[in-house]
Simulated scan of single mutants.
Amino acid sequence: MKYFVTLANASTNLNNDKDSPYSLIIMLFLFGIIFYLIIFRPQQKKSKEHERLMDSIIPGDEILTKGGLIGKVDRTCNNSDYLIVKLSDSNKIFLHKNFITSVLPKGTMDSI
Results as ranks from 00 to 15, higher is better:
3 Y>L: 10
1 M>I: 12
89 D>V: 01
24 L>G: 07
35 F>C: 14
30 L>N: 07
13 N>A: 15
105 P>Q: 03
7 L>Y: 11
51 E>N: 15
17 D>G: 04
19 D>H: 06
33 I>A: 07
64 L>V: 08
29 F>K: 15
32 G>N: 05
74 D>H: 11
33 I>R: 04
92 K>I: 03
93 I>S: 07
16 N>K: 10
78 N>G: 08
4 F>H: 10
112 I>L: 07
56 S>L: 07
33 I>C: 09
64 L>C: 10
59 P>Y: 08
75 R>Q: 11
98 N>Q: 13
4 F>I: 07
35 F>V: 14
6 T>K: 09
109 M>A: 05
24 L>A: 10
44 Q>K: 15
79 N>F: 15
83 L>G: 00
46 K>E: 04
112 I>N: 04
90 S>F: 06
86 K>N: 05
43 Q>Y: 11
46 K>A: 06
31 F>D: 12
84 I>E: 08
109 M>H: 09
24 L>T: 09
96 H>A: 06
67 G>N: 08
20 S>W: 04
83 L>F: 08
8 A>K: 02
99 F>A: 01
93 I>D: 07
23 S>F: 10
112 I>W: 02
4 F>A: 05
109 M>W: 04
37 L>T: 05
48 K>E: 12
32 G>D: 02
32 G>I: 00
46 K>P: 00
60 G>Q: 04
33 I>Y: 03
49 E>Q: 09
12 T>S: 06
104 L>V: 02
71 G>L: 00
25 I>R: 03
42 P>A: 01
32 G>H: 01
28 L>C: 03
80 S>V: 04
12 T>L: 12
1 M>W: 11
83 L>A: 04
35 F>T: 14
22 Y>S: 06
65 T>L: 04
38 I>V: 15
89 D>E: 09
30 L>F: 14
29 F>I: 15
65 T>S: 08
12 T>E: 06
25 I>T: 05
94 F>H: 12
60 G>P: 02
16 N>D: 10
72 K>I: 10
5 V>C: 05
72 K>Y: 05
9 N>L: 13
69 L>D: 13
51 E>L: 15
28 L>W: 01
6 T>Q: 05
58 I>Y: 01
80 S>M: 04
111 S>Y: 03
47 S>W: 14
40 F>Q: 15
11 S>G: 04
78 N>L: 12
9 N>C: 14
77 C>D: 10
100 I>M: 00
59 P>V: 10
29 F>P: 11
106 K>R: 13
63 I>Q: 05
93 I>F: 10
93 I>T: 11
63 I>Y: 05
107 G>W: 07
15 N>H: 14
111 S>H: 02
36 Y>L: 13
79 N>H: 15
101 T>E: 07
31 F>T: 12
1 M>F: 12
55 D>I: 03
85 V>F: 00
45 K>A: 09
68 G>W: 00
37 L>D: 01
63 I>S: 05
